[in-house]
Write a protein that binds this DNA or RNA. Structure first.
Lengths: 98, 98
DNA sequence: TAAACATATGAGCAGATGTTCATATGTTTA
DNA sequence: TAAACATATGAACATCTGCTCATATGTTTA
């Protein structure tokens, strides 16, 4: 495949993106959102972590555009932003499974 | 695509893998190795960093099996271990380019 | 074999990161 | 509108991480 060599900014952004995947709490959150959207409290319960910790991580995931959210009454539902998340994680799994 | 939910160890390994991609020095090194293998000194020169810094990072890349190496006289040549590296980086680029 | 060359490695330090705790913000309900 | 509920946020702290510096290890050459 042909590919332009990224410039400094793009390299930095790329590293920043992977850094977001590089934390097991955030990876766990993404896996929870694979099948269905979820609110903050339910994610926290599922991962057995505090609401605050999850909220902080969701903010990072949102900033990287890996998840989106929408308000539903008192709750805020989070969901995967697009299919890149799945593809990137799949490739990661492929690698470690070898 | 069907997928098993990874267990705790696998989730941890997955995060560890992405953590390796989550540093711009290591990303830069991987890009240098995209087209051809290189020795440590040349990589250091190309990235304008010390031999020691590069060597430390190459060790991490090797431990994650993202690169391999072979001795050639006094030098040690490093190369990409497999195509997952390319695929993962490509997906990352796809994401940030949107 | 001694010197030169190439790379690896350990300790130390400064900056980055994830969690907790307290509290603020925003929405619904009584 | 006050209370209850759900989430967000900032500060503080402990841990982790990447680089530097000094030096060790390994290979070739004179």
């Amino acid at each position: 495949m042909h590919r332009e060599l990224p410039n400094e900014d793009e390299l930095y952004d790329l590293a920043e993106l992977f850094k977001v995947f590089g934390d097991s709490t955030r990876i766990r959150i993404l896996f929870e959102l694979f099948d269905e959207e979820m609110n903050v409290g339910d994610i926290a319960d599922k991962l057995n972590m505090t609401q605050s910790a999850i909220s902080h991580q969701l903010k990072i995931l949102k900033q990287s555009k890996l998840v989106g959210n929408r308000r539903e009454g008192k709750q805020i539902m989070y969901f995967l932003a697009d299919d890149h998340v799945r593809t990137i994680i799949d490739q990661g799994i492929n690698h470690i499974e070898e």
